[in-house]
């Protein structure tokens, strides 16, 4: 399934974005492709809401209505991976926060464009985020990289895409 992934900096500026599509099978339809950044940025509000909650994922159990925004992945105590935070006409949006409050967000689209809700595989998405987080930390270790600047390294790009290929697009 095609995905649109972005890292959003502290000032809500995108510092990296990528589309993970498979040239043979599926791509974002052109009209949706334009919308992806908007969909993604719209979910930042929810992300920032969850950012300061002590148990961002336990809302699925306590509230009656608030649960529909979040996935059922609430077993662990961790508050980096936030699970599914938003949805938009059958697209699912997942979020992840790094320790420096960099926002990793991704739009997941279904295989068929029939509007059926996308099932997000929490385990692999989470490990994708963690791997990208490691790459991000490595980027930050570069003394010539300043915080909140776009990440233009081709190696970073290549690695993220390789990870996406391994973990996301099945």
């Amino acid at each position: 399934m095609p995905c649109y992934f972005a890292i959003i900096g502290a000032k809500d500026n995108p510092i990296y974005e990528a589309e993970f599509t498979n040239p043979h099978l599926n791509q974002f339809p052109p009209e949706l492709k334009e919308l992806n950044p908007f969909i993604l940025h719209a979910s930042l509000d929810i992300l920032e809401d969850l950012q300061w909650q002590t148990h961002p994922q336990s809302g699925a159990h306590s509230g009656t209505n608030s649960g529909f925004l979040r996935s059922r992945h609430s077993s662990s105590n961790s508050n980096c991976y936030l699970g599914k935070i938003d949805h938009f006409y059958g697209l699912a949006i997942t979020g992840y926060l790094s320790y420096g409050n960099m926002k990793f967000v991704m739009v997941h689209s279904g295989n068929a464009n029939n509007g059926s809700p996308v099932v997000v595989d929490d385990v692999s998405v989470k490990s994708f985020y963690q791997e990208v987080h490691e790459l991000y930390v490595k980027t930050l270790m570069n003394p010539f990289y300043t915080l909140n600047e776009p990440i233009t390294s081709p190696v970073f790009d290549g690695r993220v895409r390789a990870l996406a290929k391994k973990l996301l697009t099945k």
């Binding site: 649109y4 972005a6 995108p14 990296y16 974005e17 990528a18 589309e19 993970f20 599509t21 498979n22 040239p23 791509q27 052109p30 492709k33 334009e34 950044p37 776009p150 990440i151 233009t152 390294s153 081709p154 190696v155 970073f156 790009d157 290549g158 895409r161 390789a162 996406a164 290929k165 697009t169």
Partner: peptide
């Protein structure tokens, strides 16, 4: 620039993420 208005194929030499072009499409 808007991400889709630039055809990535016309920039064959580009490497890595270029924020003036937006996300590139393909996987490696």
């Amino acid at each position: 620039n808007p991400s889709t208005s630039v055809n990535t194929a016309t920039h064959p030499g580009s490497t890595g993420y270029d924020y003036t072009m937006g996300p590139q499409q393909t996987l490696p």
